[in-house]
């Protein structure tokens, strides 16, 4: 399985590093043609207004939406904002891959950014992991079919909707590979097993 990392702007390099550590081949996605080569995709952190402008300029919005119907997508921070169904900022044209409503920079400017230890629930286990939030977005509402994987101060911070995951923090900055394993590493015991899930529903 080759995974694409959207390289319009942001911390894409850190995601390539995590995938390499897991032994997963990764390639840059700079235009919608690049999606043909991959079976999963990451939308990294960065500036969501910049990402939205560039995705629109390069006509990537619809191709990523339809790619998402068949393949898993992981979004961190700005990536989570782009994957939401609704964003409290009309400058963002979201992809609607996650049935959530988000607010950008809801925890404040850089001076309020930081790393905390959070609990993450997955397959009956609880993982204690560092979560670095940088000018982080807040998830205000989630749809009925959205699974909350982790919350902090009363709001969800990691969610799963079908085969997509969105997180408001940056596991890639703390060398946390759990989310990448869940979506992209079939050899890992943490892998989400897409087919089973489809059979159940």
């Amino acid at each position: 399985m080759i995974i694409g990392v959207l390289e319009l702007q942001g911390d894409f390099a850190k995601h390539h590093q995590i995938l390499a550590k897991l032994g997963i081949e990764s390639v840059p996605i700079k235009s919608y043609h690049d999606l043909e080569k991959v079976e999963g995709c990451i939308i990294p952190g960065g500036e969501s207004t910049t990402l939205s402008i560039l995705m629109e300029r390069y006509k990537m919005i619809n191709p990523i939406k339809s790619f998402g119907e068949s393949f898993p997508i992981l979004g961190t921070c700005a990536g989570l904002i782009m994957m939401a169904k609704s964003v409290l900022d009309n400058r963002i044209l979201p992809l609607g891959l996650l049935d959530i409503r988000v607010n950008r920079n809801a925890y404040g400017r850089q001076i309020h950014s930081g790393t905390k230890t959070i609990q993450m629930h997955w397959k009956g286990s609880i993982f204690s992991i560092p979560a670095t939030m940088i000018r982080a977005p807040k998830i205000l509402e989630v749809g009925n079919n959205v699974k909350i994987l982790s919350d902090w101060k009363g709001s969800p911070i990691a969610v799963m909707d079908g085969h997509h995951i969105g997180i408001n923090f940056h596991p890639e900055l703390n060398n946390v590979s759990l989310f990448h394993e869940i979506l992209f590493q079939p050899k890992s015991k943490n892998y989400y097993k897409p087919n089973q899930e489809k059979n159940v529903s």
């Binding site: 390289e7 911390d11 894409f12 850190k14 952190g45 960065g46 500036e47 670095t132 940088i134 900055l173």
Partner: peptide, 18 residues
């Protein structure tokens, strides 16, 4: 070190941009 890493974190987010 954690606080310094958070500072570097924002710089990481600005990569590939103008």
């Amino acid at each position: 070190k954690g606080e310094f890493d958070v500072k570097i974190g924002l710089a990481e987010m600005l990569k590939g941009g103008v």
